[in-house]
């Protein structure tokens, strides 16, 4: 398992990185944490001739909040997400999810940008970003543009990101204080992708749901924002019948592969169970 040859670039600015991508087109790939791309290169399923290491761009690090929006720069690692006081206070679901990704070593180097940009349906952050209604800042030769996470994913490994663009930041609207949240992930073992996983964000008003957002991981060739399920829940008191119909609506949009994690039917059902359990925990947190 040895990667093919490539020319290595280590730009120190986003502009420089974009320029390299522009000059090499499809033959170039940006490298962030590398734990998706390097194994593919070792299997020779990916063979970029130019590798653009984003690790030297200081500007791609950091977490900040401004005017109700939390901005996480793309090369922020999962380890840094887990350790962020700002996120712990304002967006604790990010820590909860990050801790379920891969293993400690990989979380030191795995980045939020890499996780959301490469379009692997097994990754956890894309569905979470859809749940949080995040948008991605894509920087190309013509400057920045923003694409909503809910619009970004086209198919497995196909996204709205153009070959000469780099995903430089993720912008997340800060949810109201006291919101409920949970990420439930069923996996065979630490280090595995989800058999199915669900992200839920809730706000409650008295006994009823003021807003609800549900998204699912690894049960289709893209992450799934469960719009119908979210709508069904909104305004309800989370009574059994409503929850059942929201779960059914979420299951209906899944289209999982049958693989070692189980047949499609199982994975669809697990998406429903994960959603139901995430919903219950989120509701508990929202009320408390």
């Amino acid at each position: 398992m040895i990667p093919g040859e490539f020319t290595y670039h280590r730009p120190s600015s986003v502009a420089e990185a974009v320029a390299i991508l522009v000059s090499h087109g499809d033959e170039a790939r940006p490298l962030s944490g590398g734990h998706s791309l390097i194994p593919m290169m070792k299997l020779r399923m990916a063979a970029p001739e130019h590798l653009v290491d984003l690790g030297g761009i200081a500007d791609l690090k950091g977490i900040s909040e401004d005017g109700g929006t939390i901005t996480i720069r793309a090369m922020t690692t999962q380890h840094e997400l887990i350790g962020s006081d700002l996120l712990a206070e304002k967006l604790p679901i990010i820590k909860e999810t990050s801790l379920l990704i891969a293993d400690p070593q990989i979380r030191y180097v795995g980045t939020l940008g890499g996780n959301v940009a490469n379009g692997d349906p097994g990754n956890d952050m894309p569905a979470l970003m859809q749940c949080l209604n995040a948008s991605y800042v894509l920087t190309g030769p013509d400057g920045d543009r923003e694409v909503a996470a809910r619009d970004f994913y086209e198919a497995a490994y196909f996204t709205a990101l153009a070959p000469e663009e780099i995903l430089t930041a993720v912008k997340i609207p800060t949810p109201p204080a006291g919101h409920g949240y949970a990420y439930e992930k069923l996996k065979r073992k630490v280090g595995d992708y989800a058999t199915a996983a669900a992200a839920v964000l809730l706000t409650m008003n008295g006994g009823s749901v003021a807003s609800a957002s549900v998204a699912l991981t690894n049960v289709a060739d893209t992450p799934l924002y469960a719009a119908d399920a979210s709508n069904i829940l909104t305004g309800s008191t989370l009574d059994d019948a409503t929850v059942a119909s929201a779960v059914a609506a979420a299951e209906a949009i899944t289209d999982p592969a049958s693989d070692g994690r189980g047949p499609a039917e199982y994975r669809t059902k697990m998406a429903g169970i994960m959603m139901q359990r995430a919903l219950a925990r989120a509701a508990d947190r929202a009320r408390s």
């Binding site: 293993d103 065979r188 073992k189 630490v190 280090g191 595995d192 992708y193 070692g260």
Partner: peptide, 11 residues
């Protein structure tokens, strides 16, 4: 080792 089940300390 993604699919061939070798349990970690957690499982």
């Amino acid at each position: 080792f993604m699919d061939f089940f070798i349990p970690t300390a957690v499982e």
